[in-house]
Nucleic acid binder design. Structure first.
Lengths: 155, 155
DNA sequence: ATAATGAAAGTCAATATTAGTCAAAGATAA
DNA sequence: TTATCTTTGACTAATATTGACTTTCATTAT
């Protein structure tokens, strides 16, 4: 039984809509009501699960008639995906964001499953095994950026 | 058959579930309650009895709705070879030796060209970019050993 | 036009809910 | 006896939930 927390359930709900549509547009309070959570939890879900690393673009508007719109972007349409990703990663990246990045590359066909797994293992917290978090995140960034740069020349 | 300590009993309990299912997903505190032990004993059981060497993969999540998930995986035939390599590598390896290891894995067909390249990039001196040579060599070892451990099973 | 009002969404920090680590103490086996 | 394995619990870390307060925008009133 997975998804015991509400955030995961809301995530799945939104993604199920995105499976059929290019984008989803919601009213924050409606979704919050639907799942019986406070409105700001919707922001939490979006911030942790619909980032650009995950391949989503989010825009919103406040005030009357406000909305939140989530769009799935195909990174491959962009000629310089890799550049964009490298920029986003910068010089440090958490394991969670790294997972999102690798997952996106897999979904876009840049990496196959095995390659994606290899990268995740190589950059796993436990694999690196350093206790300094900043060092861990910067090593992870260097490894992933190094691989992305390699992929650019290779293809 | 005097495996009467609680760790053994918990181990059997979890394995009896895994006999019928591909994986088990537990809430740590629930299992701890069930057997009247402190939660951290579950970690002990997992760490000592559900290792990758035994063919188990473990993943977990903290926070609300957290869980520990244990999956039984199929160990591959080359597992022995990989074990040997892992031993040889130990806790540090130079870039030169790493190259040799990866090269031989490629020649043995364990890795394809692209995968081999990925690993070499990930463990390259410049990628890691640490000044301390000992740290560099130990990181390289950890990454390669992590990947080798991953290669021991399928999917 | 401008000001006032109300209706959204955003931010942030406090709190809650899990799991992980580690080392000391206790038990068992060699 | 000594080495190894097990049990325990205090402390740490990650993730989720909540709510008070802020900001933005559209509409209505002056």
């Amino acid at each position: 039984m997975q998804s015991q927390n509400i955030s995961d359930i809301i995530e799945k709900y939104l993604k199920s809509i995105l499976a059929d549509a290019e984008h989803v547009e919601i009213r924050r309070s409606e979704i919050a009501d639907l799942f019986n959570v406070v409105p700001s939890q919707i922001n939490y879900v979006i911030k942790t699960r619909f980032t650009i690393q995950n391949g989503y673009l989010v825009e919103s508007k406040r005030g009357g008639g406000g909305y939140i719109r989530i769009e799935k972007v195909n990174l491959l349409d962009d000629a310089d995906v890799l550049d964009t990703l490298i920029q986003v990663i910068g010089d440090a990246i958490t394991q969670r964001d790294a997972y999102a990045v690798v997952q996106s590359l897999y979904e876009d066909g840049v990496l196959n499953r095995r390659e994606a797994q290899l990268i995740l293992v190589a950059t796993d917290r436990n694999t690196l095994g350093v206790d300094d978090h900043d060092l861990e995140n910067s090593l992870r960034a260097r490894i992933i950026v190094g691989i992305l740069n390699h992929l650019r020349y290779e293809s």
